[in-house]
Design a binder for these strands. Structure first.
Lengths: 344, 344
DNA sequence: CTGAAAGCGCTAACAA
DNA sequence: TTGTTAGCGCTTTCAG
């Protein structure tokens, strides 16, 4: 039994136009009538028909988000927390988030739907790759978007953690703990974030006068299982014989590495130091707890979405590029003394 | 540079109506013209305007999902996997999922928006409480919905895991391992799932002739931290003095319990056996790995969404209530021998 | 099999 | 300050 605006208008004795204005707080309507109409709307339990309103306004009040490439994705707690930051912000501005969480092969199709079928007003992209073809598409269609991650294109709005510096801090910490031969578990190779984290790793070693050996690099895909497999193989092949610590490009992989080492009979940190990246909750739950680079995950989500909201409202955000600082959280896996969860 | 249906129609030399029919595979249009029009649509890169189409059809092709009450929610891996099952199914039918992941106090508001402002065609509810006021709302508005969880209302469509039987299996397993005094870490009290799991726990004990003691019940809220705190307090107060094993109503709480025991200096399973519920991925990652009751999480999501899709398409699903079986996965925390991740 | 015309419910010029 | 009049882009009777 829904009441339409026309019915409400008739009931009020005003025209649809006035009712529409009153409900949208247009300044051109007399205070009395606005109050009256709003009151009536309440009484008749009137609710605007979003779809109709959207059609007329040529908007959807929906923001699309393309989840990262499989096999990473919603399984990574990082993105969950990120999502929460986004949702929070959007909700308060009356926007909702649409996440076509689909298999990789449909990713393009999902983006097309969002863009060309007018399903969303704006988009949040994550996990940019070296030459990401999603951005030109969005630009061409004039759809506002914000990127989680960074790109060299100067006209793109992005938000990112300090990947390179974070990785540096992680590796410098391992160096401080006395390690010299430090390996790295890399995430997917085509991602910008991977490149930057690996760069930070290399720089730290370089500064310490250590020349990274080819055997010290393990390729994985940002998943736990992927890292577990890669590290297991590496251990089996005795690729680790001279390495005393590993820096993993994210926590999930660090956790996988931890398990592989356990299964191989290596103790962490005694036999092998380990540092992760992201600061997901699980990093504090594993045993030994994981030393990691804490990203301001929620904040990344909030920032990305509020940038996008500004764009959608036709404003021009103060900064196009925002890099948020990260911090090293020292726990057990890198060799520090045990600590309890009690303090948390 | 979007092309509208009118433009396409003009280009084709047909009327909008025919074009609309052709593109929607209406049988009343000649095969030749249909093919021709579809070809032209491709060529001109025509994309239907979803909002307009939705307005005319009085639908949105969007399904809303109300995430569980805080503090549980998107932080629980269970729901992520569940979500994935839903998304998969919906995507293949051209539906998308809207998840207003908002603070608890806005939950009602979010539901209202979805319902009354015609933002969604149907809803998936989770975590029913004893007297859940969301269902009457939806029923009154005639909005199709499916429940994850169960209810006594006979006319509601629901999908659920076998909570009671699962809990029984868990506790019977502990009994088999020689435990008699088995405690339970309960989830939020007002949830139906909690009641059923606790019931299963009680029944198993009863059948074994064990009379559960009041001290054996710990109250928590389905979160890791909540369980950590509850168990820590319990241990401090020496409430555990006669208990040799715990059944946690979900894995997250089991993990929290694990940490609390570690911090207290108790070894699992030697000093205290532990079994969880859900079978989230993390249950196999912790140390010791967690014996748990595996729910068919993905399948729950798929089933719930395909039930809903049927309702949305005006069909009548074969079953109103679907209870999917669960299975006990025995790992280390209940006293079984260590096992490697390699097999996974 | 195809077309004309009337909406879907709301917004936004343009008048008054 | 308010009302009139066209749409937004698509679907769907109802005729032909």
């Amino acid at each position: 039994m829904t009441v339409t605006m026309k019915q409400l208008a008739d009931e009020c004795g005003f025209s649809k136009a006035t009712v529409s204005r009153a409900l949208n707080n247009d300044s051109r309507v007399k205070d009395d009538t606005r109050r009256y109409i709003q009151e009536m709307a309440q009484r008749y339990n009137y609710r605007p028909h979003t779809v109709a309103s959207n059609l007329a306004k040529r908007q959807t009040r929906i923001v699309g988000m393309l989840m990262p490439q499989a096999p990473r994705g919603a399984a990574d707690p990082f993105f969950l927390e990120f999502l929460q930051g986004i949702n929070e912000t959007l909700f308060h501005s009356g926007y909702s988030l649409l996440i076509p969480q689909v298999p990789l092969q449909y990713m393009q199709q999902a983006l097309d739907q969002m863009i060309y079928e007018h399903r969303v007003d704006g988009v949040i992209l994550t996990e940019p790759t070296q030459k990401d073809e999603r951005m030109p598409r969005l630009q061409q269609e004039g759809i506002p978007f914000v990127l989680l991650g960074r790109t060299s294109q100067p006209d793109v709005y992005w938000v990112d953690g300090e990947n390179r510096q974070g990785a540096r801090k992680a590796v410098e910490h391992l160096l401080d703990m006395g390690h010299r031969r430090i390996g790295v578990i890399e995430g997917e190779a085509n991602q910008v974030a991977t490149a930057n984290r690996v760069r930070g790793y290399e720089e730290a070693l370089q500064d310490a006068g250590v020349n990274p050996h080819g055997d010290w690099r393990l390729n994985a895909d940002y998943t736990r299982q992927g890292a577990y497999d890669a590290v297991s193989r590496w251990l089996d092949q005795r690729g680790h014989r001279r390495v005393t610590a590993l820096f993993a490009c994210n926590d999930l992989m660090a956790i996988g590495a931890l398990q592989a080492m356990k299964d191989f009979g290596l103790r962490v940190p005694d036999d092998m130091g380990l540092v992760g990246f992201d600061g997901i909750e699980a990093s504090s739950c594993v045993d030994p707890s994981l030393t990691t680079v804490q990203q301001p995950i929620l904040q990344l989500g909030r920032t990305a979405s509020s940038q996008l909201l500004q764009l959608l409202q036709g404003q021009c955000p103060a900064h196009r590029q925002i890099a948020l600082p990260v911090s090293l959280v020292v726990r057990e896996s890198s060799g520090a003394p045990r600590q309890s969860l009690r303090s948390s």
